[in-house]
């Protein structure tokens, strides 16, 4: 379990996260929602130690992130960054996916096996020799996921996994999240896409101005006026609202 306990984080003298208390269990998908600048990515980066709490603590299976390096924590927590093209630095899809397992000290055969499995999981079989930066936006995002999946961590953080994706890409991400849950991994889904949260998450949290302002089952999101939280309502609700306004005229 990942436990966030009374977390505060300050940047340039400004508190960007205040008194955050959260937990993420294995086999659970937790959606972290909020408008741009709410502190979602800042909070997510605490879960694998990329950022350290100013106050409070984050425990990953009982290990305090303050006393562990990112490299150590990354064996337990995988992080798929918001802009995948910024994490690629090799010239071949295979090398990119193999980088993480290579750091875990696995044998070459095991690395190859993991690369194949991860690429197959995200539907990129046969892409091994392509250049990462020559892929389409959706393919790059799936490659970024494969890079983390190949490390076979117990927890996976997906930072805005569906931004810029078309319908097929969106479907693929939903499928991957389902597979991760099926494998008993804990998934933190950082997003401002309420529809995605409704579709895949077990629990939803809304972050606003660095504070948790909502935590409940995802379907309870529909009882809120999401516009008050800087979130976009699902299309169905927007259409219903428009129709009811037109009827009352």
């Amino acid at each position: 379990m990942i436990l966030v306990d009374g977390l505060y984080h300050s940047r340039s003298g400004r508190e960007v996260l205040r008194d955050i208390n959260l937990r993420l269990e294995r086999g659970e998908v937790l959606a972290l929602l909020g408008p741009n600048g709410a502190g979602k990515t800042t909070l997510a980066k605490h879960l694998n130690g990329l950022l350290k709490p100013t106050r409070g603590r984050v425990l990953v299976d009982g290990i305090d992130t303050k006393s562990s390096s990112v490299a150590e924590l990354s064996r337990k927590v995988g992080y798929v960054f918001q802009e995948p093209e910024r994490m690629f630095f090799t010239g071949r899809v295979f090398d990119e996916v193999a980088f993480g397992p290579g750091n875990l000290g696995l044998s070459e055969d095991e690395i190859e096996e993991r690369v194949k499995r991860a690429l197959s999981l995200v539907g990129l079989e046969g892409y091994e020799d392509k250049k990462p930066l020559s892929l389409s936006g959706g393919e790059m995002r799936r490659l970024a996921m494969a890079c983390v999946l190949a490390m076979e961590t117990d927890y996976v953080i997906l930072d805005e996994p569906t931004s810029d994706l078309d319908g097929w890409g969106f479907g693929a991400v939903v499928e991957i999240i389902g597979k991760l849950r099926g494998e008993g991994k804990g998934v933190l889904l950082v997003t401002h896409d309420v529809e995605l949260a409704l579709e895949v998450s077990d629990r939803a949290v809304i972050l606003s101005n660095g504070r948790v302002v909502f935590e409940d089952k995802p379907e309870e999101l529909l009882s809120l006026d999401l516009r008050d939280y800087g979130l976009r309502e699902p299309l169905g609700i927007r259409l219903l609202r428009r129709n009811s306004i037109e009827r009352t005229r």
Binding site: S69, D95, E112
Partner: peptide, 16 residues
């Protein structure tokens, strides 16, 4: 950050 998040700690075994 991305390299650190993929367990890079200065000692790497490349799969070649």
């Amino acid at each position: 950050e991305a390299m650190e998040a993929r367990a890079y700690s200065g000692r790497l075994r490349l799969p070649y």
